[in-house]
Design a protein around this nucleic acid. Structure first.
Length: 324
DNA sequence: AGCCAGGACGGAT
DNA sequence: ATCCGTCCTGGC
């Protein structure tokens, strides 16, 4: 196993967001299962998150609310790395954070679009200014999506942990130990059997296929951003192991298309209950009601509903219960 | 003991 | 186009 890399503080970045901006629930999503790629320090409201630049430069960020530092809406980020960073590197970190948290997006467009749905107003009030968060690259988000499929979240969490401890890069900065996501090359150089040994099950084949695809299509991320969402979805599903579910996650999180939502079995139940008062309505009925209420903002509306639910019901975070 | 869980594939219809 | 058996694993 590779040694832990110590990261040194390089600089600070002040990144302003288009108001309104909710720092906490933009950088921290209560519904997301925890990984050692990031850590939210509740007491200090600081988010630690790792990132990889080209040429093997590893980056660790410590982010706090810019309001606390400069009285403006946005993010204050301390940047740590194992190497010297050029101006271009820092610029790359900066634009990554801006994209990952949608700092330039106007969430009020969403609020206006769903103003006629009384049920969602409370969630908007509670999470006012929250955006979609996706610190992952396209390769990374497709890996996570694959680990989510056809299993429980508890096992997804275990798979992710196993993959990170075998293939990720361990870093240490500001007193915290985290991993940087593995690369397609890390996986390609391994074997399907080795993945299987990490308890990812039949997904071993998919994870290897995805890694091979990104290994031989190095700038797919950039290509997809140039395409229409429809073409991008088609293109994603050409990758073996990526079906409609994973493609939608990539579209919603990575490409930030606001209307993508998977009514999988647990979301179907949740929204069936929200819309109709019982958990048993069919997925088609739930989908059409969501379309009726939220139009092209279904993904965003779903996000606000789910995160609000997790804030109100911390017991949904089973990983928290274990510690208490 | 069988079935399902935050799916996708391949083949048959 | 839609339907169905199959795939790793673990929990109930």
């Amino acid at each position: 196993m590779k040694r832990t890399k110590k990261l040194q503080k390089i600089c600070e970045l002040g990144l302003e967001a288009v108001p309104p901006f909710n720092f906490k629930y933009t950088v921290y999503k209560p519904s997301h299962f925890p990984t050692k790629l990031e850590y939210f320090d509740e007491a200090n409201e600081a988010l630690y998150r790792t990132f990889r630049l080209s040429q093997g430069k590893l980056v660790g960020l410590k982010m706090i609310d810019l309001k606390r530092a400069k009285g403006k809406q946005g993010i204050m980020a301390e940047v740590f790395s194992n190497r010297a960073l050029t101006k271009g590197d820092v610029k790359q970190v900066e634009s990554h954070v801006i994209h990952a948290y949608g700092l330039n997006e106007k969430v009020e467009e969403f609020y206006n679009a769903v103003a006629n749905d009384p049920q969602i107003q409370k969630s908007i009030h509670n999470l006012y200014g929250m955006r979609v968060s996706c610190f992952e690259s396209l390769f990374e988000i497709l890996n996570i999506s694959s680990m989510l499929q056809n299993t429980t979240v508890k096992r997804s969490e275990q798979m992710m942990q196993n993959m990170l401890s075998s293939f990720g890069r361990r870093v240490d900065y500001d007193g915290r130990q985290l991993y940087v996501f593995y690369t397609p090359q890390d996986i390609v150089q391994s074997s399907e059997q080795k993945l299987r040994d990490l308890k990812v099950g039949y997904r071993a084949r998919f994870l290897m296929e995805i890694a091979k695809h990104f290994d031989s299509n190095q700038n797919l991320d950039a290509q997809l951003k140039q395409m229409s969402f429809e073409d991008a979805k088609e293109r994603l599903m050409e990758i073996r192991g990526v079906g409609p579910y994973s493609a939608r996650i990539a579209l919603f999180q990575y490409l930030r298309r606001p209307n993508e939502i998977n009514f999988d079995s647990w979301k179907r139940k949740i929204f069936s209950k929200v819309f109709f008062g019982n958990e048993n309505e069919e997925v088609e009925k739930v989908e059409s009601e969501a379309k009726k209420r939220w139009g092209n903002w279904g993904g965003y509306a779903g996000l606000y509903t789910i995160e609000d639910l997790f804030v109100k019901h911390p017991e949904l975070q089973y990983w928290r219960k274990k510690d208490e």
